[in-house]
Simulated scan of single mutants.
Amino acid sequence: MADTTTRTLKLLALLQAHRLWSALELADRLETTERTVRRDVERLRELGYPVESVRGTGGGYQLAPGGSLPPLVVDEEEAVAIVSALRTAAYGSAAGLAEASVRALAKVTQVLPPRLRKRADALRSMSVVMPGDQQAPPIDAETLTTVALACRDATELTFAYAPGARSGSSPGARRVEPLRLVPVGRRWYLLAYDLDRQDWRTFRLDRLRDATPQKRRFAPRTVPGGDPAAYVHASLRHGRDQHSVRAVVDADAESVRQKIGRWAQVEPTESDGGRPSALVTMQADDPGWIALALGGLDADYRFVEIPDALLRELRGRNAREARALYSPDRPQE
C-alpha cells in the first residue's frame, strides 16, 4: 500500500505540470507499466482529481484546470521562502499582483502546521519590505501569466509589440513560439521564435500588449547555445537600448556575485595591490540602475570600460548628489 500511495502521489505531481503525458512516458517516469498507470489514474479520479484522457495518436493524460490540491506540506525553510516571496510580490511592479499576493499569503498561512504558522506570522509581522523601484516599468499580471502559460504549454502566441525608439524596429503584431521568461535586472524578457521573421527574438514584457494564446501547439525549438538565459543576456548585450560597462570592484568576487550576480557577469581578478577584486560586466538600459547596483556593493570600484554618454550622465548624477550633501545652506556639524 505504501508503494501504491507513493507512486500515486508521484503521478499527481507529474500531472500537476498540466502538460499532456502519454501512458508510456508516465510508466517510464514511475518505473511501472502502462496498465498500472491507468489504474493509478482511476484512483486519482476516485479521489476527485479531474484527470482528462485524450485518445488516439499523440494522446495521453492531463490534469484539467480546477483540480484541487492536497494539504500543504512544507518544511520550515520552504514556509519562510513562501511567505518572503509573497510579501515581496505584494510590493512588486507587476500590476494587480499586490492584492492577490496578500490574499495568497493569508491562505498559505492558514494551511501551515501550527508551529510553522507562528514562525510565518512572525516573519510577516516583524519584517518590512521596501516598495519596488518606481522607475521599473509596471507589468500587467495578466500578461505575465498569459505568456508564462503559453511557454509552459508550448502554444503559439500573438501580441502587439512596441520596440524601443532606438531599436530601429517598427511597432506591430508579432506571432511567436514562446520558449522562456527571463528576468534581467528589474525587467522581464520573453525569449521566443518569431514565426514571421524566422529567427529568435527577445521581447521586453512591459512593451508587450494584448497577448493571446492560439490553438496551435508546437514542439519547442532549441535556442542557439542551449541556454535561454545566456541567449537573452547576449542579445541584450548587443541591443541598441543597452549600456555596457566594465568595472573593477575592490571586493571578493564571490561576495559581489551573491549581491548582483543575477544582473551581471562577475569574474575574480586582482587589484594593483595584489588584493582580491572582482571584474564586473553589466548591461542595462537605465544608467541609474548601473549606479544603484555598483553603489550597493559598499566597496570602492572604478570603471575600466564605459560609454562616454553614460559617463557624462553618471557624472551629472554625482554632481547633483554632491550639491545636496555639501550645500552651503546645509547646517554644519
Rank of each mutant, 00 (worst) to 15 (best):
A293V: 07
T202R: 07
L310F: 01
R7A: 01
G168T: 05
L44V: 02
L297M: 13
A89D: 01
P307I: 09
F203C: 00
T222K: 14
P287T: 13
D286V: 12
G67M: 01
Y61G: 08
L195D: 05
A13Y: 10
Y61M: 10
V51G: 06
G273C: 01
R216F: 01
D3S: 08
P137T: 09
Y161W: 04
G172E: 02
R240K: 13
A17H: 11
T202M: 01
V41H: 02
R315F: 02
G132Q: 11
L63E: 11
R7Y: 04
F303T: 08
S169K: 14
W200F: 15
G273R: 06
R315H: 04
Q265G: 05
Q110S: 13
T57R: 14
D28P: 01
A192C: 03
M282L: 15
T143L: 09
V266Q: 05
S327F: 04
F159S: 01
T145Y: 10
D272V: 11
P331E: 10
F159Y: 08
E142V: 09
N318C: 11
A79T: 15
A293R: 12
G172F: 02
L20F: 07
V245Y: 01
D140L: 02
K10F: 04
T281L: 03
T109H: 03
W263P: 00
Q283C: 07
P114C: 00
A17Y: 00
L72R: 05
S244V: 13
G239T: 09
E46C: 01
L69M: 11
Q258S: 09
P328F: 07
R221N: 05
R45W: 12
L63C: 10
L15G: 12
P276Q: 09
L47N: 07
T158C: 04
V51Y: 14
A173V: 04
Q332N: 10
R209L: 02
R209D: 13
A173W: 05
R87P: 08
V37N: 04
Y193T: 00
L179P: 03
D206T: 03
A27Q: 02
H18A: 13
A173S: 10
L20P: 06
V108F: 14
L12Q: 11
T36M: 06
S277M: 03
Q110P: 00
A278C: 07
V266N: 04
L86Y: 07
E42Y: 08
R262I: 06
R257I: 06
F218D: 09
R39D: 11
V111T: 15
I260H: 12
C151V: 13
D329V: 10
A160L: 03
D241Y: 05
D194C: 09
S327E: 08
T88M: 08
T155G: 07
L157I: 07
E333W: 14
R209N: 06
L144N: 07
P114Q: 01
L310K: 06
R19Y: 04
K10H: 14
L12H: 11
I260G: 12
D227I: 03
G164P: 02
H18C: 06
D28Q: 15
A319P: 00
M282N: 03
T5I: 14
R302V: 14
K107I: 08
L144G: 05
S127M: 04
